[in-house]
Structure formats: C-alpha cells, structure tokens
Design a protein around this nucleic acid. Sequence first.
DNA 1: TCCAATTATTCTCTAAGTGAGTATAATGTG
DNA 2: CACATTATACTCACTTAGAGAATAATTGGA
Lengths: 325, 325
Amino acid sequence: MLTDAREIMQNQAATGSKARPSTKAHNASVDLIAVVVAMTEHGPSVLAVGAGDALPSGPFEHGHRSLQSGLRGWVEHQTGHQLGYIEQLYTFADRDRIGEEGQQRVISISYLALTRAEHSVGLRRRLWRSWYDFFPWEDHRTGVPTIISDVVEPRLLAWASEPGSESLRRERRQRASFAFGLDGSSWNEELALQRYELLYEAGLIEEATRGSERRAPPPPVPGAKMIADHRRILATAIARLRSKIKYRPVVFELMPPVFTLLQLQRTVEALSGRLVHKPNFRRLIEQQELVEETGETTADTVGRPAKLFRFRHAVLDERVAAGTK
Amino acid sequence: MLTDAREIMQNQAATGSKARPSTKAHNASVDLIAVVVAMTEHGPSVLAVGAGDALPSGPFEHGHRSLQSGLRGWVEHQTGHQLGYIEQLYTFADRDRIGEEGQQRVISISYLALTRAEHSVGLRRRLWRSWYDFFPWEDHRTGVPTIISDVVEPRLLAWASEPGSESLRRERRQRASFAFGLDGSSWNEELALQRYELLYEAGLIEEATRGSERRAPPPPVPGAKMIADHRRILATAIARLRSKIKYRPVVFELMPPVFTLLQLQRTVEALSGRLVHKPNFRRLIEQQELVEETGETTADTVGRPAKLFRFRHAVLDERVAAGTK
DNA sequence: TCCAATTATTCTCTAAGTGAGTATAATGTG
DNA sequence: CACATTATACTCACTTAGAGAATAATTGGA
C-alpha cells in the first residue's frame, strides 16, 4: 500500500535537489533496546547485562510478530522476565555506526518496560542496578544530594564561564540553574534527560569524551557509565516514567499483587526521587479509587498494622487520567 | 560501540530458544512519514499528497544527517515548507508489507510537524485538507456533531449487540460510551486515536475492510479515507497535538508573528475541536506571560480594535510547563 | 501493666487554580 | 446618536493541592 505514497513522493522529489534516481530500497538494521524497570531492595532498578553497563538489546527478526512482541520475546527469553507494561520511547539513527558495507545504518528503537523483580525465573546471568548508580544527582529523597553542590554546580559554573560571548555564558548559567534547581529555581524531577544532556554537553559525562582524544577531558561527574548511548536512553526512560506516573496508573506494574499504601508511596518516591506528603498521597489514591481493600492487614513489622490493598484493574477502562501526581 | 551489547545479548540468547546462529545483520527499509499541520482558511489542516489521501513520506537516505533532518529535507524540498516544530510520533513495523526479496520489512517512523501555510513557496503540487474531512466526528466547536447521534452511536451500539458473550457486549458498550462521550460520559478531545481505533475495530472505517473480501462489509462511517494506515497516523498526531498544547507552547508555531488574542483562541479551538471560555482563555495566556503586546492594534474589522501580541520566545527557556489548557 | 516508640489513619486550614457568568470599553454603522 | 460588535476587566463559587495537627492501633521494653 505504502508504495503508492512513496512513488508519489519520489515523483514530487524529482523536481527538488534531493531527487533520487532509483527506487532501490534503502536498508538499515534495526535494534530493539529495552529499559526494564523493577523495584528491588536497592531501589528503582534497571535490568543490565554484560558488565552491568549495557541495556538488553537485540535485533528485530523476521520471526517477530511486531516490534513490541520482538522486544518482549528477547527480554523474556534472555532473562525470564515477563514484561507487563511496554511503551515505546524513541527511535534514533546513530550516525557513527555505519555497517561494514557502508550501505548499512543502524536504527535503534528503545522501549520502557515495567516488571517485578520476582518475575525472574531461572538462573540466567542478569543484573539489577539502581538507576541512581548511573544518575546519583537524581535522588532527592533525603534532600538535595551533596554531589550537586560539591561537584555538579561548580563544574557547570566553570563550563558556563569558559571564554566566549557573554550571552552564551548567561544562557549556560540559566540552563544549569533551570535544570538542577540552582539559584532560585526549584527542582523538577522530570528533567532527568535535560540534566544528562546538559552534563554531556559540558563534557562532564564519561561517554561524552570517548573517542575524541583531542585534549585531556575533564574528570567526569560521579555516576556509572554505560556503553554507547545507553545511559542517555536510561535517562529518557526515567524522565518518561516520572512524568507518566502522574497521570496514568503505571506504578502498579511494579507492585506486588497486594500492598500497603506506604509501600505504594515508597515506590512512587523511589521513582520520582523525592518524598511526598503521606496524608495527601493517601487522599489522592483513595479519591481516585485506584485501589480497593483486601480486608487483610499486615502483621510483619512494628507499629500499627496497615490495611492491604490491591489495584483496581477496572480503572484502566473507566478513566483516562489516573495517576499519582 | 553497540556491537558489544549485541554480542553480549546473543551470547546470552544462545541458551534460550530464540538463539540465532549467525551474526548476519537483519535488514529493513525505513520510511519517514510526516503529518504536517497548519492553520488554513478551512481550519486545522494537514498536508496531503497524491489524491489528497496520503501523507508525505519518503525513505531514509544516507545523505540524511539524522532521521529528523531527513524528514525536514523531504518535506522542505517537496513542498517548500519550512517545518518549525518536529516531534516524533511513533515507530511501527507493518507486518503485511514484506519486500519482494522476503528478507525485507518496512519500518515506518512517523512525525508531527507544525508550520504555517504561508511558508509555502513555489507552485508544487500539494493539498491542504482540513483534518475534520477525515474525522468529521472530532469537531465539537458548534456542539456535538450530528454524525455522532445519527451514525456513529447507532452503528457502534449495533456492533456492541452482536452475538457473543454478555461481558463482551458490555465491554464494547462501555468503550463506546467512554470514547464518544455517550450516556453520562463527557467528551474528551484527546481520545481521537482511541475513537478511530474503536471504529476501525467495529469495521466502520473503510480502511479496515480493505483486502479482506470475506463478506460484504458494512457501509463505513462518513470521513475521507487515506491510503494504508495514514489515517491512523493522522489520528495519532491529532491526539498528540491536542494533548501537547495544554502544557507546551506549541500553538505559536501555527500562528503568524503577530496576532490578536482572539485569533490565538480560534486556533486553539480549531485544534482541540471545542470552544473555550474567552475571559478564562485570556487570563490563562496573560498570567503565563506567553505573549507580549506589540503596541499596535488591529483596524481591519468591525468592533473594538484588538491589541496585537507576539509570542515571547523567552518562555521556551524559562519554564517547563506552559500551555493553553 | 503501662509508657514510649512506631506506624497508620483521619481532619483541618489555607492558598491557588478553574469554570462560568457579568460588567464595562471602544470601535463601526445606519 | 442608538446599536451591533468585538475587546477587555472583574467577580464568585467550587475544586484541587500543599502543609500541618490530631488521633488510632500496634510492639517492645521498663
């Protein structure tokens, strides 16, 4: 069907400067990359492979019914994890990765998947790592991390003071303040990607200085590195998830079937990287009718026993907006 | 760089059932598809090619610096339009479109682009069509369109009454009510994609009954058809744009450099398909400081002259959230 | 047994935001 | 100069969101 459109386009393009003489199909290899998130004892964690510095990924194959099922198959077969929720993140073409034939480019399609760590089956090699290992400046649950005032802020200010036009310097200072909540700005947890990109641009991310050996790069800001652009993809996933939990009930994909409201709150806090007001959180959850009581209570720990709840799957049909803002 | 990751994955996969023996690259051809939106005299319009039933699209080429610049190049050279704002929509692999060699699949990457119709240069063949030509049920500016109560609702209810389990029928009724604001539900303009998918699933969209000639399809609901899945891509774009204008100042990409507040309001209304309260709209725009006065006023029409405004481009740096909710 | 510590749960208060209506101002037209 | 028309300003009720205080039900030990 689409051939019609392409022919039309090429006929039109024939009058432009980018006209292509032939109808030869243009080839690329397609990679599927997954950011698989689960809650572990170490906090919000991501499934890593290799030396713990790579996201699961694999080529899109003919046997795959669709992109999404291809990804699902890869992750399930490799790690024994059933992915509950899958969402496409972004598609990009890496300019620097030309295949040997020169006629090949790599298209990477990245996904965010949510699961539970217990869904792990078998003993295959895998690694859950807290995403704050990769982004230590993103965890504000116990206040603004010291790394920001000790390392990030001075280095960004140094970068913003490099020789150049005054307007460039002011713009850099402004972007740094905005992204990291410096000066009067407030911290916005959804800016995870912008923060990573800013540090990358400032040369403070290890991945940014790989390959180009022109001059000695400045020592990078703390945070575990990843191969290729995987850390950027992870930052994209974090930003997307932090935004999404506010208007869609996706947190429950990370929860056990039955949980207390505090456990739910802790999960939301772990994802967003900041604490929430407990009574307000409860009010929000209950007035949205996201959960229903099981009738049971916990007895395991100290303090008053908490009621147990389960997710009301019916809300998925009932409403459009429902989340944990 | 990514080769590392892929090798790791394949080593792991070797223990799974989907192990692939070779490292042979998997090929696909990549199509870029653009939904180019502008305001014309006919309302919110989309750039169509061919018989007005196809979105501009073209293959991703080696000369393209990136996917986005590839798309930009295609559209600019074909239509003379400068695309201000480009945003990736979705990437999908069409199962039914296998290339002649059998070793080929088509990956389509769709984009939403915003421009102004006046940016048109030259006389190349092109066509602006109101997007309500394709989705007549989406325009609620003059009340609920009659097509909903006259055609959509009865046909959907008939579909929801087909033989099957009672739970299936109830679920269908519920989805129809939710998507189209029937019964007690209220209309939600952001559900454009869900509505199209529901009609498609119910066999009421012409594209849904193409190819399969098993039995006589029911007559489709009014609305211009498009080739392949282009109408679905357009629905995705509409939904995305209707959502986005609420929290990001993207409307201004569609506005002339200088405009009145009423013109801005009419544009927002045209996009969202519903009327807004004029005083509240003004209050919102002004308190967000999205615009600044030029000092001039209009003199062209009847009534009190309106102040002219221009977009404050500074807001793009200042804030994260800024829109026309 | 009873008090302290701990966690759960409910309420209140306030500020800010949103939806809807009303009033006033400035222009052109008959 | 009344009047239609569009622009602009103001008000009010209602809902939502942030923050703190108060009360309830447990466990662990003095």
